[in-house]
């Protein structure tokens, strides 16, 4: 395993300049994600248009893998309906955990394939997706409990 497989240029770029960084106000749903192992914390706020994610922002504090993953996710899911988002998460999850997982149709997200060589870092990359799921699940609820990857 090589470090430049993990820290690819696109990941370093999204870490340095995260896209869709901030907080939507008002938002239809907010969820907090926390990875207690490394202290990564992020908040996702989103607005829905029918079944689709109309807009999404994230903020928080985390390692390069978690920030870049959230940034790339934010670009990938905007404008997508829930079924598409779920299918995308399944593909990303496979990419992070399975050696032979295909990276086709993932666009920039394919840059995360190096993470699977560093098992301790898989949770960093998946935190934003779990948090997005929590936000979607709580879209209609008044409260937004924290999720954890631990």
């Amino acid at each position: 395993m090589e470090l430049n497989e993990l820290y690819r240029e696109v990941i370093l770029d999204h870490n340095r300049h995260p896209r869709n960084f901030g907080r939507l106000d008002p938002a239809d749903a907010i969820a907090n994600g926390h990875n207690p192992l490394c202290g990564d914390k992020l908040t996702i706020s989103l607005r829905l248009a029918g079944d689709a994610i109309e807009d999404l922002k994230f903020d928080g504090n985390g390692c390069a893998i978690s920030v870049a993953s959230a940034s790339m996710m934010s670009e990938a899911v905007k404008g997508k309906d829930r079924a598409t988002v779920t299918a995308l998460f399944d593909k990303v999850h496979a990419l992070l955990t399975q050696q032979d997982a295909p990276s086709t149709d993932l666009g920039k997200l394919a840059a995360l394939s190096g993470v699977r060589e560093f098992p301790a870092r898989v949770k960093c990359a998946s935190l934003c997706w779990h948090t997005l799921n929590a936000a979607l699940a709580n879209a209609d609820a008044a409260s937004a409990p924290a999720v954890s990857t631990e």
Binding site: C38, G62, I65
Partner: peptide, 10 residues
């Protein structure tokens, strides 16, 4: 500019 977790991996 480098999160401690990234530092740990490197």
């Amino acid at each position: 500019g480098v999160h401690p977790h990234d530092l740990g991996t490197i």
